[in-house]
Simulated scan of single mutants.
Amino acid sequence: MALQQGWPTEDLQFQVNNDIRGLVNSVNDGSTSAFMWEWFTTKPFADAGSCRFIGQVPTPWPSWLIAAHPTRAAPSDICAFLNGLSGYVRTFASPEHGAGPSVAFIQQTFGYPEDDVKAWLQAVAYPDDCAEIPAHVITDTLAVLQKAGVVTAPQGEIDLGQYVDVSIAKLT
């Protein structure tokens, strides 16, 4: 957000509050000024008056990405996982599931009202193949993290193979 707003980023300080309840509590006790969290997860707290929604800041990267340590998981296991996950994601995101079973699952799991679940499902997009990563996701994320001082820019051209095992994932 600081980068998007043109604010200085050299002296940013963050307080770790662990989870959404910790964030809401810290704002209410004054130890945190504000927090950023996904809208539909925060909405029940805003609806209950525990916090107030003041705006939104779209991230320059997807909300979810799967990461695995290269020496702790066999490539074949990761491929099998991503293949299976892709099937589940396609089913979950399908129109017939989005109109019934997926809504019911989210309602039962998270306790969200049906209208909020339906609005959330209309606002999100899912990949057809969880093993595909658009190359711009890596380059855009690295650019933001470099500007924020979290990572150092590599010398020369970015080698995307340094960040993605192309024997497992497909850069698109």
Score class of each variant (00 low, 15 high):
6 G>P: 11
8 P>I: 01
8 P>L: 06
9 T>F: 03
13 Q>V: 07
17 N>R: 15
20 I>Y: 06
21 R>D: 13
22 G>E: 03
24 V>T: 07
25 N>M: 15
25 N>G: 10
27 V>C: 09
28 N>H: 07
29 D>Y: 09
29 D>R: 07
31 S>T: 15
32 T>E: 09
32 T>M: 08
34 A>I: 13
36 M>E: 05
40 F>Y: 14
42 T>L: 15
43 K>L: 12
48 A>G: 05
49 G>Q: 07
50 S>A: 14
52 R>N: 10
52 R>P: 06
53 F>V: 07
56 Q>V: 07
62 P>K: 11
65 L>C: 05
65 L>E: 10
66 I>W: 12
67 A>S: 10
71 T>E: 10
72 R>V: 08
73 A>L: 15
73 A>P: 03
75 P>M: 03
76 S>T: 11
78 I>Y: 04
78 I>Q: 03
79 C>E: 13
79 C>S: 13
79 C>A: 13
84 G>R: 11
84 G>M: 04
86 S>R: 10
88 Y>A: 10
92 F>E: 00
93 A>Y: 01
95 P>T: 03
98 G>A: 10
98 G>K: 07
99 A>E: 12
100 G>K: 08
101 P>L: 11
101 P>H: 09
101 P>A: 07
102 S>H: 04
103 V>T: 08
106 I>A: 03
108 Q>P: 00
110 F>R: 05
110 F>I: 04
115 D>A: 15
119 A>D: 11
120 W>M: 15
121 L>G: 06
122 Q>G: 06
125 A>I: 02
125 A>T: 13
126 Y>C: 11
127 P>R: 05
130 C>H: 01
135 A>D: 11
136 H>Q: 13
140 D>E: 14
141 T>R: 03
142 L>C: 04
143 A>D: 15
143 A>W: 04
144 V>Y: 12
144 V>G: 05
145 L>E: 11
148 A>F: 07
150 V>M: 10
150 V>H: 03
151 V>Q: 08
152 T>V: 10
152 T>M: 03
152 T>F: 01
154 P>I: 02
156 G>D: 08
157 E>P: 10
159 D>K: 12
159 D>W: 06
160 L>E: 09
161 G>I: 00
163 Y>F: 05
165 D>N: 13
166 V>T: 14
168 I>D: 00
